[in-house]
Design a protein around this nucleic acid. Structure first.
Lengths: 146, 146
DNA sequence: TCCTTGTGTAATTTTTAGAATTACATCACA
DNA sequence: TGTGATGTAATTCTAAAAATTACACAAGGA
């Protein structure tokens, strides 16, 4: 029933990796400073993106790099990496409908059938945006890589 | 950054009104029983839908009725009625990016530009589902109106 | 007319999910 | 082997969602 800020933080990290990854070692501490959230959250997000094959993180010595071209990193890919099957309950449903009422008994399945099409649309939409788009948008701000 | 259960509760209420509104007085107490949530929440949702011109509620004697044909009650209409401009922050964004970092300084605008297209898609998607669809789905379960 | 059964809302408390923090094991390289 | 990283579990803090409480007001019937 929600899309938390994780997805945005992940994009922030990926953008940072793309722009600065070539010239410096990008650690969770550095990303924590840039994003304004704490290193543990960053590491958990980075770990999820590593498992999803988006980046590579070297334990010990530290640092991370992109392992896919930006055009192939869709927002959907990032989203599922950090939120798992989060779209499944994109729209919240009340948890205690009455089993004594015919509508209460069936409301879940009635809603889910139609909500599924919304999820599909959302999935498609998230797939249509890639890291390359964010990079292009970032470059427009005039703050190129150092 | 979220879609709460309000929307689902609202659909539940509208479905109830459509199926039982003709034969009995549908009060917030009754809907609270059916949905499993409390009467104040129901009244607040009903009040919002009344303001949006979807239903009519008679204070005092009690009861509510639909004032639009089900085909014209889109999920988007219900959503905006009960959540206002909720889609604006459908996807959460971290609130404290560093102003010292070029990416931190620009991440909001970079994200929002692309998120806007996702919101547009979501809007369109919610507009494509109507109460009539939910009614049809409900009828399929074999639990027709009494 | 006043009593009952509703609605309309504000204010407060409870609950829950999201995020931060703490703690510590492990890894890689100098 | 010491240092600066990552990897994660466990706990605490915070903020948004929902429930609860309280009470003013509305309409219709006894």
């Amino acid at each position: 029933m929600r899309i938390s800020a994780k997805c945005s933080i992940a994009v922030h990290c990926l953008l940072f990796l793309h722009e600065y990854g070539g010239t410096q070692k990008v650690t969770s501490g550095l990303l924590a400073l840039s994003t304004g959230c704490n290193p543990v959250m960053i590491r958990s997000i980075m770990s999820a993106m590593k498992k999803a094959g988006i980046i590579q993180v070297t334990a010990g010595s530290g640092g991370a790099v992109l392992v896919l071209p930006p055009e192939e990193i869709t927002l959907y890919r990032v989203y599922t990496a950090v939120e798992g099957d989060g779209l499944r309950d994109l729209i919240g449903v009340h948890s205690m409908p009455s089993a004594l009422c015919p509508i209460g008994r069936n409301i879940r399945v009635v809603l889910q059938k139609r909500y599924e099409t919304v999820r599909e649309d959302m999935r498609r939409s998230l797939q249509s945006v890639t890291l390359a788009d964010f990079i292009a948008e970032y470059r427009k701000t005039g703050s190129g890589p150092v």
